[in-house]
């Protein structure tokens, strides 16, 4: 219909309404991030930080052979986690949307998947310790079953434990957006595809996956940024044997090397943003969300 614009005569209202959010976002996100960027150009003499404009911090980070290793390790974690969470998230959403017929049951099961989101990540990580440890449940089960004689050491304090914990923590970030985009698929489309003679596999490949792309992309952004921003899981679950960019950055912070830490942070955020942009290139999330 003819334009339905803001309520007449009150053009100020949205500015007043958004002011608190804008203020907090600016003071607690915008300016702090600028501070970090600024800090990455400052000088550090081993004792204190001085205002300056130097590329030395970047030079130090980029010339260190450790940096590449850290980035590769971080990307490896991100890739493995992304792969597993996508497969699990897609399968679970597919089951919920297309195989659970009762709407109430569907929503109930969906909530069951999301409730852990509202509990502590630290505790959820800790909860793997009694399971994976040398004397943990998994090892004792394997020994009892006669599959192994000595307990496996690689279960806890290893890359395996790190990725497993990531999957445990972050799969629901995949389920929620995929579930949402799948739930929007008009069931008639599936019927039409079946009418046209498509097999279930063809329907999955040609109809459901393309229409779930937005959800997968959104979930991927969540998972990639969460994994790449973590320092705690990698530190604890690898038993201090592995490191990621952020955990190395955390070490720098602990030693008060703020400018170097900031330079690493700027590089990491650049890489993360590039990856997010790449994902957005594949799927125009904004256009699809507006649907």
């Amino acid at each position: 219909m003819s334009g339905r614009s803001s309520p007449s005569g009150r053009p100020l209202a949205p500015y007043l309404q958004v002011a608190p959010l804008a203020f907090i976002m600016l003071t607690m996100v915008g300016i702090p991030l600028v501070t970090v960027v600024m800090l990455s150009f400052w000088e550090f003499d081993g004792i204190a930080v001085y205002p300056a404009f130097t590329w030395a911090n970047y030079a130090e980070v980029l010339s260190s052979p450790v940096t590449l290793t850290l980035f590769l390790a971080t990307l490896k974690y991100a890739f493995l986690t992304l792969l597993a969470t996508t497969l699990i998230g897609f399968t679970c959403s597919y089951f919920l949307v297309f195989h659970v017929r009762n709407l109430k049951v569907q929503i109930g099961l969906f909530l069951l998947c999301t409730i852990p989101f509202w509990t502590s990540n630290v505790i959820r990580m800790v909860s793997w310790i009694p399971f994976l440890g040398r004397e943990g449940l998994f090892n004792s089960m394997l020994i009892k079953a006669g599959l192994i004689e000595q307990p496996l050491d690689i279960l806890l304090y290893s890359d395996f434990a790190v990725v497993l914990t990531y999957i445990h923590l972050f799969t629901l970030f995949m389920i929620v957006p995929i579930f949402n985009s799948m739930a929007k698929i008009n069931p008639n489309l599936i019927e039409a595809a079946r009418d046209a003679g498509a097999t279930p596999a063809q329907i999955l490949w040609n109809v459901i996956i393309p229409l779930s792309k937005t959800g997968i992309a959104l979930g991927s952004i969540f998972v990639v940024t969460l994994v790449m921003g973590d320092f705690f899981v990698v530190r604890v679950m690898s038993g201090g044997q592995s490191a990621s960019v952020v955990s190395a950055m955390k070490n720098n912070i602990d030693q008060l090397y703020y400018p170097v830490a900031s330079a690493m942070a700027v590089l990491l955020v650049t890489v993360v943003l590039l990856m997010v942009t790449a994902i957005l290139r594949v799927v125009d999330i904004r256009a699809e969300l507006a649907r």
Partner: peptide, 18 residues
């Protein structure tokens, strides 16, 4: 037809648009 301005005129009479 849609967009001819009839609803806008109505809403101005009602005071929802100035």
């Amino acid at each position: 037809p849609s967009g001819c301005g009839k609803t806008t005129l109505l809403r101005m009479i009602a005071g929802h648009e100035t």
